[in-house]
């Protein structure tokens, strides 16, 4: 007998949670955002049920504004692993021409939050795994592993069910659904160390490379396609950049970096002087903005 390493403990905890959901919840789904946390979560799901395939489908909410490399990676991953990958887009929003340049926070609401609600309702999923981590943001730090949403998909932070030991209560009331966060106790560093230990494939955007970018409001935005309109005074430059989080390319700030290997990324993470979500443009809006959006149904 030996003491498990902290990564082994985190892995075991995540797998335990996934198996509980598979055993107790009526219709689970795993949200897949293509980012590094999703890659880790997917990897854990493959391990949790081995030699069986994960007994639930995966769901990607496609805003139509993701980096092209992300979509390629998503499709290749699904094919390679032989898993069921559902893709949902809020077509209503597309028809209305909702985009991240002109619609700001309404864009996030319509193309992400609303789209997610629509997809969950359409398929009738009763539990959805998400890759959220408690170290990301202050309101997340207080969320349970099993987090309940009412019929409007809203979170009531003041009335969370107590979660004792590993005895997760998965009973839902009519119309309620659950968000499950198996990576709750992982930090960004744990994620990178685990990716290294397990040799997990991640989207190449995480590695530094010469990419066409513009500097906008203190963020480095990559010009991923010709829908990106330049403001006066802006010009496209080739810079060696990488991304610490991935999302919609107009809303995802890159960092100048030389880190083009996993070890270099880990070293950079250890030296990190800005916490990860800084590079998500929407989080800056107001203190408490994340909590507000979650109450409204953001994942």
């Amino acid at each position: 007998m030996r003491e498990l390493t902290h990564l082994e403990q985190l892995e075991a905890e995540a797998i335990y949670i996934m198996r509980e959901v598979a055993a107790e919840c009526e219709k689970p789904v795993m949200l897949y955002s293509i980012g590094k946390d999703s890659s880790v979560m997917l990897h854990l799901a493959m391990k949790a049920f081995y030699p069986e395939k994960p007994p639930f489908p995966f769901l990607h909410i496609d805003t139509t504004w993701k980096f092209k490399e992300m979509i390629t990676f998503r499709d290749e991953t699904a094919k390679k692993l032989g898993i069921e990958m559902l893709v949902y887009t809020n077509m209503d929003g597309v028809k209305q021409g909702i985009n991240p340049f002109n619609h700001g926070s309404a864009y996030t609401d319509i193309m992400k939050t609303q789209a997610l609600k629509q997809a969950l309702d359409m398929y009738g999923f009763t539990a959805a795994f998400g890759g959220g981590r408690r170290d990301e943001e202050k309101s997340r730090a207080k969320e349970r592993v099993f987090s309940f949403r009412n019929a409007q998909h809203a979170w009531d932070p003041k009335n969370q069910r107590p979660e004792m030991w590993r005895l997760y209560n998965t009973k839902v009331n009519k119309g309620e659904s659950i968000r499950v966060f198996p990576l709750s106790n992982w930090t960004e560093k744990d994620i990178w160390q685990y990716i290294r230990q397990e040799n997990i494939d991640i989207v190449p955007l995480y590695y530094a490379k010469e990419r066409p970018v513009v500097y906008r409001d203190g963020n480095i935005i990559m010009v991923d396609d010709d829908r990106m309109k330049l403001n006066s005074g802006e010009k496209i430059e080739m810079k060696k950049v990488r991304f610490r989080t991935l999302g919609c390319y107009p809303l995802t700030g890159g960092v100048e970096s030389k880190a083009d290997t996993l070890d270099a990324i880990i070293e950079e993470t250890l030296q990190a002087i800005t916490s990860e979500r800084t590079s998500r443009v929407i989080d800056h809006e107001a203190a408490g903005s994340m909590e507000r959006r979650k109450r409204e149904g953001y994942f």
Binding site: R140, A141, K142, P157, K158, N185, G288, R292
Partner: peptide, 19 residues
């Protein structure tokens, strides 16, 4: 003290996990 309600009231109402 992460939740808005907590900051307003100046008390801690739920468990916060730190790493």
């Amino acid at each position: 003290d992460g939740l808005m309600a907590e900051r307003e009231q100046g008390i801690t109402i739920d468990v916060a996990y730190r790493y």
